[in-house]
Computed example of a mutant assay.
Amino acid sequence: MAEAQSQSITNTLKPKLNIPASSVSISVKIIDASTISNVPAHALVTPMVPGYKTASPAPSYCFLLEHPSGQKVLFDLGIRKDWQNLAPAIVERFKKVGHQPSAEKNISEVLDDAGVGKENVNAVIWSHAHWDHIGDMSTFGPETELVVGPGFKDFFLGEGDGKNSALGSVQSSDVEGRTVREIQFQGVGIGKIGKFPAFDYFQDGSLYLLDTPGHCVAHLCALVRTTTNPDTFVFLGGDAAHHCGEVRPSAYVPMPEPILKTTAKTSVNQHDQLPACPGSWYEDLQISRDRDPKGPLWQPAFGHNMEEVMTTIQSMQEYDGDESVFVILAHDPSLRSSEVRFFPQEINDWKQRGLNQKLRWKWTEEILDTLNC
């Protein structure tokens, strides 16, 4: 399996992202400070893979972005350590479905302990306003701006349905006394990278916020330039997809032959029996579930607007197919690897260290284990 994961990918299509040139890069540090366990697979993805009943314990990553100017920005805050103080409807939902969130520290404490200082954070960007991404904004002072996507204020703070959402939990303490800046993706200065409208956050091409609707009202992704000459980037995916198997394989990133040729000992058609045939396990599994044999294993089981969810994933596949871009989903346990350097170290050398190739297909190990391959 290691050979398959490290093997270079030959893409059948080449994406055209047309990322503007820039001489400015940003330090990117992944903060892994929280975990969600015991989530039923059917609550996240569909159609089911027989035997795959509970998703692996998943992180909820946050990202410290440090600009050469000295400005510091956080992308997401993960889970607050006192999650019991989330909105009562959310805590009741945990009890009902068995979710087990955990976080020993708030992100503000992680920064303080590392000597960064929460008071030095200029802004927090929420990919979206679900409980496992917004942390506890009240632990940052009023000088820290909150940056959100289009439609956030009306839906979560106004007359929309956000206050009653079973997943959202924006509280008055998150927003009172601070600037809440809602990014708009229309008008002068708004470009397009790939198929996503893009807002140039620092106006120097180092950080783009991307309009990626579907999963939640006001959902944002980010494209961060990690090196120049050559240019490399990380794509911060938030919850545009929960699992890599919702994005891969694709026309841009086909599954490598060594994985496809793994021998399946059990399988999954309508009779729960799959012939032990090298090279056929993924195709047979997909066909048995009415899925594209060359397409992603799953699609998301829910979203605010499912048509937009699927369009966003299709557009994200173009980024995933660009070898200069490292796509990181907020809940991808594959990154919990000895290969990955977490905060306080940065991940800017991901391309040089071959992380994309080493980790891109790691998620298939769990599926193959489920199928007893």
Rank of each mutant, 00 (worst) to 15 (best):
P278T: 04
V253I: 09
P300A: 03
L329Y: 00
V28E: 02
Q184W: 11
G158F: 12
A218Y: 07
V121P: 01
P249I: 08
A123Y: 09
Y282K: 11
G191N: 09
D369A: 14
S56E: 08
W298T: 04
G303Y: 01
V309H: 03
W131T: 06
K163V: 07
V253C: 05
T262W: 06
P150I: 05
V97D: 15
D154V: 11
D290N: 12
W361V: 01
E318V: 05
L285N: 00
F140W: 09
L17V: 06
Q317M: 13
M1Q: 13
Q314D: 14
H130N: 12
V73L: 08
N120C: 06
G303M: 00
E66V: 06
K261R: 14
F342R: 04
P344Q: 03
N38T: 07
V49H: 01
P278E: 07
Q352K: 15
H99D: 14
L167P: 00
R225Q: 14
I79D: 00
Y201E: 10
I30D: 00
A198P: 09
C62Y: 00
A33P: 00
T35I: 15
W131G: 04
P142N: 07
F233P: 01
D239N: 08
T227Q: 12
R248W: 11
K265G: 13
G279P: 05
A251T: 08
F233K: 08
S324D: 12
W361D: 01
A241L: 07
I26N: 05
S324Y: 02
T311D: 14
E3T: 10
E318Q: 14
Y201T: 11
K358E: 07
G117D: 05
C277K: 15
S280N: 10
G162W: 01
L13D: 07
T266C: 04
R353N: 13
G187S: 10
D211A: 14
G141T: 09
F140V: 07
L209E: 10
H243D: 12
Q345W: 09
G70D: 06
M306N: 09
E119L: 07
S23P: 05
K362S: 09
S60K: 03
Q7N: 10
V39Q: 01
I30F: 04
G70N: 07
N356C: 08
N106Q: 02
D320R: 01
N164A: 12
